[in-house]
């Protein structure tokens, strides 16, 4: 006996053009997180000027960054239909394509991150690596260029963070994504995620408070940029105004305002602010909220952007 539902009830079963799903959202999230890590690593390298003065979390962050970005690129690789053609990104550079730019940024980011591992990774890991001769040579070279590495790290971090937002904006067919605010928004979200992750790893109270304060600023900036994102769309062309309706009563309203804004930004902002005022001792759960909110932001924007392209109020897939 075969069963099918009839009429209006099977609208959502029809395939949607969900070209990008969790994998791309996960890549954008991890990319943003690594961007934020690079930003803070650079900042702290400049602040402290010496290895020993660096907070432990930053030193572990330097180890985590290449692993996280590697995981993110693996997700992107999973999304490619023709996996064997991945090298073509490097043989066919196009000035106008953010995809092309991104693959080169990534290629430049990895050596920087490896140098940082050699420079500032916790001693247990560093001593293992530096033992090898070429690595020790590279490390001593890098030691001399400490400030260059630090500045490069900040710049690369900002570029990578903005790139994760622009990558989406490149597609003209998706009005929701063509916004100047998206790059800075993803950067702010990446920085807030990295601050949360470092606060999670940090044991020293003073350093933790520093990251919590940084997170409060980044989350505040994120809220402002979400505002800018809305204003930008609302004052733009008709098809932008229609696209933003997805968050103003349309199919992604609740996930956006509920999971991204309340769970991922507003609630942690409130709790961390209370912590800085000495009213609350923040637990591991709050940075986790920030990270979950960051992933939700990427997913909701990626999914909603594609729904806007296919024609407004498209039904959601089974993930949300």
């Amino acid at each position: 006996m075969t069963e099918t539902l009839v009429l209006r009830t099977n609208e959502g079963i029809d395939p949607q053009l969900h070209i990008w799903g969790w994998d791309v959202a996960g890549y954008l999230f991890l990319g943003g997180l690594v961007a934020g890590l690079l930003f803070f690593i650079g900042l702290h390298m400049r602040r402290s000027g010496a290895r020993r003065a660096l907070p432990t979390s930053v030193r572990w962050g330097a180890v985590a960054a290449p692993l996280l970005l590697g995981a993110g690129m693996f997700l992107l690789f999973l999304d490619l239909d023709l996996k064997l053609h991945v090298w073509r990104f490097y043989t066919a550079f196009r000035w106008t394509s953010p995809m092309s730019w991104g693959s080169w940024i990534l290629l430049l980011v990895f050596p920087l991150m490896l140098v940082q591992v050699l420079l500032i990774a916790p001693e247990s890991i560093r001593s293992l690596l530096v033992r090898a001769a070429p690595a020790s040579w590279a490390a001593s070279m890098a030691e001399r260029g400490w400030n260059v590495v630090a500045s490069l790290s900040i710049l690369t971090g900002v570029a990578l963070g903005i790139y994760t937002g622009i990558l989406l904006g490149a597609s003209v067919a998706r009005p929701l994504w063509s916004s100047a605010a998206l790059g800075p928004l993803f950067l702010a979200s990446g920085i807030s995620g990295a601050a949360a992750l470092l606060a999670l790893l940090e044991r020293d109270h003073a350093a933790r408070a520093w990251f919590t304060r940084a997170d409060v600023w980044a989350l505040g900036a994120e809220l402002a940029l979400i505002g800018a994102f809305f204003v930008g769309h609302a004052t733009s062309t008709r098809c932008h105004i229609e696209a933003i309706q997805l968050f103003l009563g349309g199919a992604y309203t609740a996930p956006f305002w509920g999971l991204v804004v309340v769970v991922g930004v507003a609630a942690p902002l409130l709790l961390e602010w209370l912590e800085l005022r000495g009213r609350v001792v923040v637990s591991a759960a709050v940075p986790v909220l920030v990270l979950v909110g960051g992933l939700a932001l990427r997913y909701v924007i990626v999914a909603a952007g594609q729904a806007a392209g296919v024609g407004g109020d498209a039904p959601l897939n089974t993930f949300f």
């Binding site: 609208e11 959502g12 079963i13 409130l270 637990s283 039904p315 959601l316 089974t318 993930f319």
Partner: peptide, 24 residues
């Protein structure tokens, strides 16, 4: 039913809220 997403339901959002309220 009707291609609905099982997690996109008020009770799930309510549960997320309970967690958040409990945390606060």
């Amino acid at each position: 039913e009707g291609g609905a997403a099982p997690l996109k339901d008020s009770i799930v959002f309510g549960a997320v809220g309970v967690f958040l309220g409990g945390l606060i």
